[in-house]
Write a protein that binds this DNA or RNA. Structure first.
Length: 740
DNA sequence: TTAGGGTTAG
């Protein structure tokens, strides 16, 4: 938001405001009216701003600095409705966020500056104009079905909209509307800013901003979602995207790829060597260049020589092509394939890739960021191609590679074939048929698939790191707290001493004693009674007061158990242990960062967000049952705790010859047939899990020698900060009996 | 200023 200073001299502004602006009184402001071309004059107080250099100061003669304000930075704007010397003194000041009004594309008027939303129907990725700036041409459409072509200029590439696909949704601020050839046209005006969103219905609404500071409110998220839904049923935006394995001799297509090498050819053309992990089914043209002109890793260029293709770019694209970094991810729009007839009949004809001069049909080069969902997918695929035996790969197209996978069983001995039995089995939906990973990757989420693939790699490699705590109510995951974290949580409880008045109530019997060691620690244990009787230890729930608990835990961590270690054994001997602290008139649970219950070796934790702890006295209602089971879920319920469940969370990189994808395993017990809650304290189970993973993905083996896994996976959309993409999760699958 | 959508012709 540009902020300019207007000096008022003798009651009149020194510089005139733009002529399209009309003065409005504050009292006449109304929600729903278009105020884009209105202004009001009052005293503004801008608090918490940043001062930035104005990029257009030289051209438009405005102040050399901008003031930047944002909600994120805690900025506030105060408007003094009654001018006063001390604007902070009254209660009339109010914090306001800028409220933008968006004009539908059928309501545009010549000479106005407006804010717009629209679906990208066509775009030219930014290219260097013949003037001083980058240019991008964008045609929008909205629910009014009216189109608007905008011509956007900026000297800074990042200030133009980050559009990667037709169907993306944009929000433009401060677009100037002009009439040109009888049609409305949009053009950048001072302070132009844009946000771009993925246009896929159901995808998270995460803006790609052209400026560091912007506002985006819930109401606008709704606007984006409405445009997506409208576009889905009213527009056809499928682009001419293709993989190298799909190319035909005469076509124009968009290629998402990685740059492996580049070279100067002559004055008007430049060579880009790119790959997308698939193989072109035709012999491809190799552009002769001088070795010294070729940039890129020579070893990699040689290794990938049969998978890279030479794209010759011409004229206006040369400048941008030269500036590209090796290794970067690109989308090259409207590449032309051309079959060159061989001059010599002995040589078979080859296919050429050209990016001709000009920008017709959006012809150009776009640089994709690493977090682009298509790049993420491509990277995973490329990693797997690099991992596979290059000798086998190099002479194979991707479809042949798929065949090689399928035919493996036929080439093997009966013994080997036996070993090819799936290492995992399905627990349901046996009637579903298999889908290739390529098809899965090309399908919209959410969906469910049955797949057959090999486990190339998995994370985490340290299996104990795969255990997390999950709240099934709010669906959050957290790390299992370690002893140190627990220690710090309890520091606030240090001063809490056992309250003598809370000893031995009707439903529990308390025992307090002092340890015989040099520290003379006080220990209080409350044994919960059943029908006013104490039970056998294995049926008894007891509560230990935190004063003891804290020291106990610390000493255990330091390996100096001593007398207290004996008490720790209580958790094994007694059915349940609940750490508590004394309050004025009752015992109560600790902060939920600590376990609310210990049973055997397992510490049970509660969700801080979803729990509403109730009185500890509610335990007495459980104790009154004929045979208290002291089940953790039952205890949690009466204490108002939403229990967290232990779960294995792993990332499996699966491949089947048609593609590769990362699928998450989210498993309480079913997949490994090992309870996630017990693995951290049971070395036998740890060994069992390690052996299972060694069978599913034997270390150091070639792809051919890996076992097949039959799995169900489901796809879903997810937002993770600024990133959003389709994720996959394994379900209804378990390791085969002979593997466990 | 630049471009103002609608394929090069190497």
């Amino acid at each position: 938001m540009p902020v300019q200073l207007l000096k008022i001299i003798k009651g009149k502004p020194e510089t005139q405001l733009p002529s399209h602006l009309q003065r409005e009184e504050l009292k006449h402001l109304q929600i729903g009216l278009d105020h884009t071309n209105k202004y009001f004059q009052d005293i503004f107080v801008v608090a918490g701003f940043k001062v930035a250099e104005s990029p257009t100061a030289r051209e438009d003669g405005r102040h050399a600095c901008h003031l930047q304000v944002s909600e994120e930075a805690g900025s506030a704007i105060y408007i003094c409705t009654q001018p006063s010397v001390t604007p902070f003194s009254g209660t009339t000041s109010a914090s306001v966020a800028p409220k933008y009004v968006y004009t539908p594309l059928n309501c545009l008027k010549d000479g106005t500056v407006v804010n717009l939303y629209g679906i990208v129907k066509f775009f030219k990725p930014p290219y260097i104009s013949k003037g001083t700036d980058y240019c991008s041409v964008v045609t929008l459409v909205d629910q009014s079905n009216v189109k608007l072509t905008c011509t956007l200029f900026n000297g800074n590439l990042d200030s133009l909209p980050k559009i990667y696909k037709n169907g993306d949704i944009v929000r433009f601020h401060r677009v100037k509307i002009r009439e040109y050839n009888g049609q409305m046209q949009g053009i950048t005006s001072a302070g132009f800013a844009s946000l771009t969103f993925d246009g896929t219905v159901g995808a998270p609404v995460v803006p790609r901003a052209s400026s560091k500071v912007y506002t985006f409110i819930d109401e606008e998220q709704k606007t984006v979602e409405e445009l997506r839904v409208w576009a889905a049923s009213n527009l056809s935006v499928s682009g001419p995207e293709a993989k190298l394995s799909d190319v035909k001799p005469m076509m124009f297509f968009d290629l998402t790829c990685q740059l492996v090498g580049k070279a100067k050819v002559d004055g008007s053309s430049f060579l880009l060597k790119v790959w997308d992990g698939t193989k072109c089914p035709y012999p491809t043209w190799k552009v002769p260049v001088e070795t010294k002109e070729l940039e890129g890793d020579k070893v990699l260029l040689h290794h990938l020589r049969n998978l890279t293709v030479d794209v010759l770019v011409y004229d206006n694209h040369v400048h941008l092509a030269k500036s590209l970094k090796i290794g970067s991810f690109l989308r090259i729009y409207s590449i032309h394939t051309k079959q060159a007839s061989a001059k010599n009949e002995d040589i078979s004809s080859h296919i050429e890739f050209h990016l001709h001069g000009g920008t017709c049909y959006g012809r150009g080069i776009g640089i994709l960021p690493e977090n682009n969902p298509d790049v993420e997918e491509l990277k995973t695929f490329l990693e797997c191609v690099e991992l596979t035996d290059s000798q086998n790969m190099e002479n194979m197209s991707s479809s042949e590679l798929g065949d090689a996978f399928d035919n493996n069983a036929d080439l093997e001995s009966p013994l080997q074939r036996c070993q090819q039995l799936s290492a995992t089995v399905l627990t349901d939906h046996q009637d579903m048929s298999n889908t290739t990973l390529k098809t899965v990757l090309n399908s919209r989420a959410p969906q469910q698939f049955r797949i057959k693939a090999k486990l190339r790699s998995f994370k985490p490699q340290k299996l104990y790191q795969s255990v997390k705590l999950h709240c099934s109510k709010c669906n959050t995951l957290q790390e299992v707290p370690n002893g140190d974290a627990f220690d710090s949580i309890l520091q606030g409880c240090e001063a809490t001493a056992p309250n003598p008045e809370l000893q031995s109530m009707s439903w529990y019997e308390s025992v307090m004693w002092t340890t015989g060691d040099e520290n003379q620690r006080k220990i209080t244990i409350h044994f919960v009674k059943h029908y006013e009787m104490l039970q056998r230890p294995e049926n008894t729930l007891l509560m230990i007061e935190v004063l003891i608990w804290k020291r106990l835990e610390r000493l255990l961590l330091q390996g100096k158990g001593g007398t207290l270690k004996e008490i720790w054994k209580l958790t094994r001997r007694f059915k349940c242990v609940i750490p508590v602290k004394s309050k004025e008139d009752n015992l109560e649970l600790l902060d939920l960062s600590a376990p609310f219950l210990l049973q055997g070796n397992i510490k049970y934790y509660g969700c801080k967000k979803c729990s509403t702890p109730k009185s500890i006295k509610n335990l007495s209602s459980l104790a009154e049952k004929r045979e208290p089971s002291w089940e953790p879920t039952e205890i949690a319920q009466v204490l108002g705790i939403e229990p967290l469940q232990y779960v294995f969370v792993m990332k499996f990189t699966l491949l089947d010859g048609t593609g590769a994808l990362n699928a998450y395993l989210f498993d309480y017990e079913k997949f490994f047939q090992i309870p996630a809650s017990e693995i951290l304290t049971n070395s036998f189970l740890q060994q069992k899990m390690e052996m299972t993973m060694n069978t599913l993905s034997p270390p150091g083996r070639k792809l051919d020698d890996l076992p097949w896994l039959e799995c169900f996976i489901k796809s879903y959309n997810i937002a993770d900060g600024m990133k959003h993409q389709v994720y996959y999760q394994i379900f209804d699958t378990t390791v085969a009996e002979d593997v466990v």
